Simulated scan of single mutants.
Amino acid sequence: MAARSLEIGSAGIRAARTTENLRTEQHLAQRKLAERVTTLGHPMSNTMLSRIERAQRRCDVDDLVLIAEALRVSPFVLLQGPNRL
């Protein structure tokens, strides 16, 4: 089986940028947001979050939903992109 492509699509890029924007607007360190996601039952390190925000790691649907919950927004907000805030 071939290795899965790491290419991040446009929705992933929008979610990454919006995650970072919301996190900084809420004055949250990456470590704090990762802790919130972990508390919600989805283990996440600040390194994982950093890679998601820099679009170096795919943000799967579980990541997306729980990051949104930890930021207290709808997952749709993350998918719409930073220009929609």
Rank of each mutant, 00 (worst) to 15 (best):
G41A: 14
L49Y: 13
E20C: 03
A3H: 10
I13V: 08
A2W: 12
S74M: 04
L64I: 05
E35M: 10
R54N: 07
I13G: 00
S5E: 04
L64M: 06
A55D: 02
T39W: 03
Q56E: 13
A55T: 04
A11D: 04
S45Q: 10
M44Y: 02
L49A: 07
I8H: 00
C59E: 09
G9M: 01
P43N: 09
R36H: 09
E69R: 15
M44S: 07
A16W: 01
T24A: 03
L64S: 11
L28M: 11
S50A: 10
T38E: 00
S50G: 12
V65E: 03
L85H: 13
A29N: 08
V37E: 03
R84L: 04
L78Q: 12
A2Q: 10
A68T: 15
R4K: 08
G41V: 06
G41M: 10
R51D: 04
I13K: 13
S50V: 01
T18V: 06
E25T: 11
R84P: 00
L6E: 03
E53F: 11
R4Y: 04
T19H: 05
R17W: 15
H27W: 08
T24I: 05
R54H: 10
M1D: 02
R17D: 11
R72Q: 14
R54C: 02
H27E: 04
I67Q: 10
R14Q: 11
L33Y: 07
